[in-house]
Every structure is written in structure tokens, then in C-alpha cells.
Design a binder for these strands. Structure first.
Lengths: 362, 362
DNA sequence: TTGTAGGCGTTATCAA
DNA sequence: TTGATAACGCCTACAA
């Protein structure tokens, strides 16, 4: 294919100028290089007539710029089931292309080589990196940042030179849990998504604990379960929770994906939401508002997330440190119908939540 | 960053050989070029000690190969809300990286320039293209195929030279609708996802019509609604349907995403699923099995989809026409709890489905 | 079995 | 204001 392999040579010949001139015209270095309008016209005409398109490889080699950015995801499962990712990806896609960058996606597949994406950096095939929720232990990232390679991470990344966007997972989890508490819940389970060394999950857990602490509620480890990223895992974790304890009245879920799984588990066990148990999620993924019951959750603007990340990264690539270098996106509690006040029965009387099961039709 | 810009020059010098030898060793052209094992070792050692990584741009320019593949999506909205896409993307990601290719994602943002992604081809920045659900009118695609540029489209693409993977949308829709009919439904609404010139949506509609025809049921246009790709649109379309007609007992939804929206709409109107209305979706996206009611749908293996597409494309890039060149993935009806036999009341007696509303608690 | 050298298509630095 | 020309890093005949 290759567009008939028309090169600057051809354009130059046709326009009767040198290839250097063609390059100048095409790269219009602002006011620096002044080209006679007449010459410019001639070149532009030739370009148009020949259907010339600059070759990426040549440009890349000569300029050292690949005009490509990479979006790195912590895991492939993540990509497969977490509906929040596509939100980010979608706006990132937009920003990139509007600014003349291609967008590479790299979901880490092989946990034994979590930094395989570094190859793209070393091969020089990308100009910048947006790493979503990196694990803290990835030292390579700091090496890149210290070497001034354009990288966007989370805003809490422990390197003063780092630039990042995101939101406070801790705070969002706090918001969610506080809401449950404000509704009157005291026995609140935490169904986090893991693994535990996964930074954002850890932060969310921290927020959950903090909210409990503020209300003088002790963290009960039997009420804490770790799922992974999938609906299935949420289902499983919720089932386990239900077997381990029968007196909690609410669940704080690490994200909407596992919350959806948990809801199904509760449903299958005959637990009614929010009558018997309330549940609040996080992320507000597209289906959340359309479930029955609609999921109360913490809304984060995924599109804004991707946009800001893209813009910051591009700014970095162009040599300007974004201002501000660290952005915390706002999070907002969206109250829907999966939450309510806890059931008003004393456990002594009712003897567990399933006592009401005989009333439930279906 | 650029890994200290170590080039083949450096490696060659260090190993005491020429850069050609280094290149030979690195590109081990199978048995063709025999290199003395001793020399090879020396080179490999130098590579390791220097931490040499080949430069993508140089390689790209010299070889004409970018080692990058692009995944093109018909729209950004699609990417944002259709949970089927990430399934494909995830396995595509895997196949690409395992084979040493980078993966570019291009979601078409600007409908006025639906083929903007062609730039990537003309710039020569990708070696191949996987176009998901292209619109039929994109003539450029045929130009590429005819020029032997590696392209993967759907298996039904009207060009004998085309290679493609996918599944029969028509057949899948037929399966879904047939099932509803087999359950006893006669008044079956079609809530498709659009736009109408969107090939897959059109095929699904065709399958729906075909199933009705087989059962001697006339297509009633008042029972046909077009959504777009989002949950919201499914919600809206279902609401309209409900206002236009009150005697249908089942809905065939163009995909699970709009089905989820539709379920919410029915729910909000007090319609109970599947008691009053059954609904069947398509694609079997991750949350579908976890809804209440769990969605009956047509399962397609998204991971397999992406894998095959990736493998076929890579084979094409390497110069081998995949065998077979067109793959139809199997589709499977997954019966869950959103479908049942139609309510057994005569419309004369009941006077519309809402007559039973007073019995519904909640 | 290994080395030489030309070329891939741009960019960018100098001269002119 | 424009034109030569040297990089850029690698691949690959062709020679040796």
C-alpha cells in the first residue's frame, strides 16, 4: 500500500525546490523560517497533487519523536471487566488524536514481567507513558521520571518530580462509608478488590477504615473480604462474607464491578437490597444506574480523567511541565436505590437476616 | 531516557565485529545466515553488558515494518459503553504483544471524518488494521484490501480478497428471536442499536425479521425501535416502545448494553421481567449474568474474537493468507432468567399489561 | 563466516 | 530565502 511511496524527493522535484524547502514548508516552524508565499504555494500544490503524506518512520528517526503515547493498564483482567477503563480510554483516544498522537494500549498480561511495557520506552517507540494505577514497587517508573521521560501516574505517586491525575481513593471510600454510617449502619462489611498490594485498593480500604474510626467503630476483620477485579470475584467474596457473618447491614464495595457481583450473590441468597443489606460501590460505571436496584456509588468522571491525563502527558512530551502537575479529580456520592437505613429489628428478636425469608415471594 | 542511546555501533565495537554481524545475530534469519557460535556469544554478551535495545525508528525505516497493529473502532461511544469491546481488546492485546507487535487503538471520534485512521496507513505507521464492524460505505477499506495491505474485517465483508473474523449477526439474532417464539411469544418487539446504516445492527434486525417470518408473524413497525449504543438509549427506546404499544410480551434487544437500559425502563414502569415481558439480549457482556433478572442472551466469545483477529492479522502481515480466511465464531443461546413464557391472559380480559400493577408490592 | 557500503525518508545545520 | 548535506539507527545485498 504505502500511498505509492511518494517522498519529499518527489514533492521537491515537482515543485522545483529542494527537499529542505519542502520540509520547512511542511513543518512551518512558526515565524522562524520565512518562506516566500509563492514558494510555499508551489510546494503545497505539489503535495496535494501527489498526495504526499510524510513517512512516520523517517520522521521518527530524524526527529527522535514517535508521535505515539502509551496507555498502560495494570492487568488484562482489568481491561476485560472493569467498565471504568473504557471511559478513560475513550477520552484519551480523543485527546491523543486531536493532537496528532497515536495511542498504544498495553495491558500487562504476564505478572512475572510487570514491566514488559518498558520495552516500548527503550526501543524509543513511544514519546510518553500514562500508567494507570501502577503498583508501588515498580522502581522503573521512578527511573523514568528521574530521567525526565514523560510519565503520568496517579497524583499520589511518591516522587516529587512525578506528574499525575486521579482522585483520592481514600477520600472516595471515606465518602462512601461515611454515607452508610450516616444512614445508621454500624456493621459494615468491606468487599474490596485486590490484590492487597494494589495501591488503589489499599487506599480504598484505608478510607473505609478511617470512616469507621471516625464513628468509633472497630474494624472487624471477619467483615473484610478481598475480591479481584471481576464480577465473579465479587460474587464469591460476598458469598463468603455472608457465610462468615450474618449481622452486617451494609457493604462497602471496592468498585462497582465487584458490587454488581455482590448484588447477585445477595440476591441469590434471598437477601433483599436495600431492605436487608445496603450496598455502595465506587466508580459509577455506565450500567450502575441501570441496575435493579440502581447502585449507590461514588461518581468519578472517567472521561475527564482520560482527558486530563492525555493533556498533561502531551504537555510533558512537548517539554512543558503541566500546571498543576498533580490533579485530584472530584468525587461525588450518587445516591440511588441500593442503600437505605438498616433494618429496624434487634438481632435478638430476629435471629439473623434470613428469618424474614419466608415472606419473600419469587 | 532512550536507554543511554546505545547503538549497534557500540555493540559491534565492543564485540569486535561489524554492525552487520550484530544485526545478523540479532535477527537470526533462521538457518540462512550461519554465524560462528563463538561470535554469536561475543555479540550477545556485548548486547547484554551494554543493555542494548534496538531502536524502533531505525528498524522501522530500514525494514519498512512498524511492528504495530491498529484496532479501529466504529465510534468512541461504542468504546465507552459497550462492554463487549474490552473483551476483544484484551485478547488482542495479548496476541499482539506475544508476537512482538504494539497495539494501537483508534476509536473514530469525528463522524465527518470516519476514515481518519487511514492516516496511520498512509504514514506507514502501522503494519496492519483490524477494523471492527466497519460501515459498508467505507470504500477506502476495499482499496487497502485490493492493494494487499493487511486488513481484518468481518467475515461477511463484500470483497473476495478480504479476510475476517466475527460471527453471524443475522444468525445470532435469529437464534434469540426463535427462542422467544419457541417460548410462545408472538408479539415481539425489536429494540435494536443503531444507527441503521450500522452493518451489524442491520444484520441483527434482519435475523429478527427472519425468525418472525419463519413463524408466520408479520413484522410490526410499531414494535421496532432503534437505540444507539448506550444504556441510556436503550432506556429511552424501551420507554417509547411501551408508549407506542402495550401488547407485546417480549423484547429482542440488539445487544446487552441496550437490553440493560431497557430492563431499567421496564422496571421503572412497573413491568415485571419475565412475568410481564421477556427480554433477550446479545453479546453476553460480563455483567449480564449478574443482573436481576439475569439476562438471557446470545453468548459470543469475545476473547476468542480478539485472539483470532490478532492471529489472522499477524499472519497476513507476515505474508501468509490465514486459513481459513473467513471465520465465523459460534454463537450460543444462554438462557437465564429474563425470559419465560408469555403471560397467560387474554388481552380482552386483562386490558393491557398494567392491569396487574396493583398487586405489585415495593 | 564476516565486513563494506548503500539506502530507507526525515530533520536540521550550515552555507550560499 | 533557499539548497546541500550530514546525521538518525538499522537492514541487507554484495564482497571478501
Amino acid at each position: 500500500m504505502r500511498a505509492g511511496k511518494i517522498t519529499m524527493q518527489d514533492v521537491a522535484r515537482k515543485a522545483g525546490v529542494s527537499i529542505a524547502t519542502v520540509s520547512f514548508v511542511l513543518n512551518k516552524k512558526s515565524v522562524q523560517m520565512a518562506i516566500a508565499p509563492e514558494t510555499r504555494e508551489r510546494v503545497l500544490l505539489a503535495v496535494k497533487e501527489l498526495g504526499y503524506v510524510p513517512n512516520a518512520a523517517g520522521r521518527h528517526l530524524a526527529s527522535g519523536k514517535s508521535h505515539a503515547l502509551a496507555f498502560v493498564l495494570p492487568s488484562a483482567v482489568h481491561l476485560r471487566v472493569d467498565a471504568f477503563i473504557p471511559q478513560i480510554l475513550s477520552s484519551l483516544n480523543e485527546v491523543c488524536h486531536q493532537n496528532g498522537f497515536n495511542l498504544l494500549v498495553y495491558a500487562i498480561e504476564d505478572p512475572s514481567r510487570p514491566d514488559a511495557y518498558m520495552d516500548m520506552v527503550h526501543e524509543n517507540s513511544i514519546d510518553g507513558l500514562f500508567i494507570l494505577n501502577p503498583r508501588e514497587d515498580e522502581e522503573q517508573i521512578n527511573a523514568l521520571i528521574d530521567a525526565d521521560f514523560p510519565v503520568i501516574v496517579g497524583p499520589g505517586w511518591p516522587n516529587p518530580k512525578a506528574c499525575g491525575v486521579g482522585f483520592s481513593n481514600r477520600h472516595a471510600a471515606l465518602q462512601a462509608t461515611e454515607y452508610l454510617i450516616s444512614e445508621g449502619h454500624r456493621r459494615i462489611a468491606c468487599l474490596n478488590y485486590g490484590p492487597e498490594n494494589y495501591l488503589t485498593a489499599a487506599s480504598r480500604y484505608k478510607g473505609y477504615c478511617e470512616a469507621l474510626a471516625q464513628a468509633d467503630i472497630a474494624v472487624d476483620k471477619t467483615l473484610v473480604a478481598w475480591a479481584d477485579f471481576s464480577h465473579e470475584s465479587g460474587y464469591r467474596a460476598a458469598s463468603e462474607l455472608l457465610e462468615r457473618a450474618d449481622d452486617f447491614t451494609a457493604i462497602f464495595a471496592g468498585n462497582d464491578t465487584v458490587a454488581i457481583g455482590a448484588i447477585a450473590a445477595l440476591h441469590d441468597k434471598g437477601v433483599e437490597i436495600p431492605r436487608d443489606i445496603s450496598i455502595v460501590g465506587m466508580d459509577d460505571i455506565p450500567p450502575s444506574g441501570f441496575l435493579s436496584p440502581a447502585l449507590t456509588t461514588i461518581h468519578v468522571d472517567g472521561a475527564e480523567y482520560g482527558r486530563q491525563a492525555g493533556e498533561m502527558l502531551i504537555s510533558l512530551v512537548k517539554g512543558t511541565r503541566p500546571q498543576p502537575p498533580r490533579v485530584y479529580l472530584p468525587t461525588r456520592l450518587v445516591i440511588r436505590s441500593s442503600t437505605a437505613a438498616p433494618p429496624v429489628r434487634s438481632s435478638a428478636l430476629a435471629g439473623g437476616r434470613f428469618s424474614g425469608g419466608i415472606c419473600q415471594g419469587k
